[in-house]
Amino acid sequence: MATSLALYSTLEFAANPGRPVTAAEIAAKYGVSLHHLSKVLADLARAGLLDSVRGVGGGYRFAGNPKRLTLLDVIELFEQTVESGNGNGERNEVETALAQVLSEIDEITKATFGSITIETMLKLVEKHRNAGSPVAEKMQR
């Protein structure tokens, strides 16, 4: 959950460079708990992806490089890279065979998230917005 919130938020901030956006705005748009979201935004700020804005309204502003920041960079702030299989000791042949298949999936997942930048995502969001897809409508809400 924290990871999805982080991804939605990063995209919201990156789509509004320069404009401070508040946690309340994002919480209302995605229908999520403000308390939970505030923690996620504090983590993103600690990682240097957001700057907090003082004064009336407050909020945060995007501080990352949208051309180089990937979805994987954001995900890894909230999730450990999972090692498949039995972590302790030797693996038997069943565990080894299953781990091989699971690592195939992990590799594809990593290559996908690691090559999609925030800027590439914003272009994709725009494409869905222009196509008026249900996904885009949800993102716009």
Partner: peptide, 18 residues
């Protein structure tokens, strides 16, 4: 190649999907 992050980032930036 899935470990060629440079090429993957480039083709993704062009709008290519899996």
């Amino acid at each position: 190649s899935r470990d060629n992050n440079l090429m993957l980032s480039f083709v993704r930036s062009q709008g290519m999907m899996a």
